[in-house]
Each structure stands twice: as C-alpha cells, then as structure tokens.
Amino acid sequence: MEYISLFVKSIFVDNMIFAYFLGMCSYLAVSKNVKTANGLGLAVIFVLFFTLPINWVLNTYVLQPGALKWLGPQFAEVDLSFLSFIVFIAVIAAFVQIVEMIVEKYLPSLYSSLGIFLPLIAVNCSILGGSLFMQQRDFPTLGEPLVYALGSGIGWYLAIVCLAAIREKMSYSNVPAPLKGVGITFITVGLMGMAFMIFMGIQL
C-alpha cells in the first residue's frame, strides 16, 4: 500500500517537471513532436530506474555517515557524504556510456531510435535530481527507491509527451511574434503545472 502511495505521489504530486523543474532544458528542447518526445521519455524512465537504486546502494553502504560499519568497527565514524555529488554523477555518466555501447552493439534498431538521446541524458537534471532527492528522503529499503524511480520517470514521460502533443497543435495557431517558440512554451508549461496542482494534497 505504501508503495502504491509513493508511486502515485511521485508521478502526479511530486512531478519532476511541474513541482521541481528538473530536466527542463531537454524537456523544452526535445518536445517539438510527439515521436522524439516519446523516445527521450522512455530513455529517461530507463536510466532513472537503474541509476537511482544503484546510487541508493552506494549511499547506504558507502557514503552515509557510519555507512562503512560493515567494514569493521573502526570505520563506524567515517562520513563520506561530501563525496556524494561526484559519486552519483560518475555512476550516471558511466551507466549511460555503458548502455550506449551495449545498445549500439546488440540492438541497432533501438539505438537508431533511442541512441541520440542517451548522451543527452547524462546531463539531464532529473536523473541526478532523483538521486539527490533519494538521499534527502532516506528510504529505508531497496523497494522504495525502485518504486520512486519508476514513478518519477513515468511522471517525466507523461509531462514531455503532453507538452509535445500541445506544441504540435499549437504550431498552427497565431501566436504574437515575440512570444513565438520558447515564450509561449513556457506559458503553456506554467498552465499545465497549474492543472497538475489539483493533485496536491492527495492522500492515499
């Protein structure tokens, strides 16, 4: 039950885009049509789902204050949490690089549709943001980070596909010249954010 609550919350209430503005740069740049938005969204779900639990394991058993207790009692005082940024980003960048190589070698058809987005994802804020929120929330077991990663990824996917659909339709409308392109997109995202706010305060 807690898992379902966390899952729904991370999709709608704590939506990466509308509540925290994470991954905004690629969100705005790659949402011109639904097909590419779909590719990037799926890639984000995939990378988030694997890197976040890996980072949880590292955080719990290596980085947290006292996390190195399993090495011996003399390590109980060690606090490596200042290294967490560099460890998290290294895990993400390495994972993205490895996945890119594997997909390129064994799944060429997937690579041609997803491949160009993979390097972009290493610097997508929502991936690192997910890991940092995970650290802040202190999830007790491995189950929570898995559910949280899946939920946040789906939330991001939902947001980018919705925006791409709106932008496809909007290209036919008559927007004032200075507002064309990015300006109107920002306002659209703002209005979508307001719509998503109806989920706030939902208790499951």
């Binding site: 509308f18 503005f21 004032p176 200075p178 997109t185 703002g190």
Partner: peptide, 18 residues
C-alpha cells in the same frame, strides 16, 4: 507556487524579444 515562475519567465522572454 512553481507554475508562476514559468509564466513569469515566459513574460520576460516576451519582453526581451519584443
């Protein structure tokens, strides 16, 4: 609330480009 920041930024971009 978060959505207003987006709308405000949209307006700043509007002013800048006008």
């Amino acid at each position: 609330l978060p959505p207003f920041a987006l709308i405000l930024l949209g307006c700043i971009i509007w002013a800048h480009r006008a």
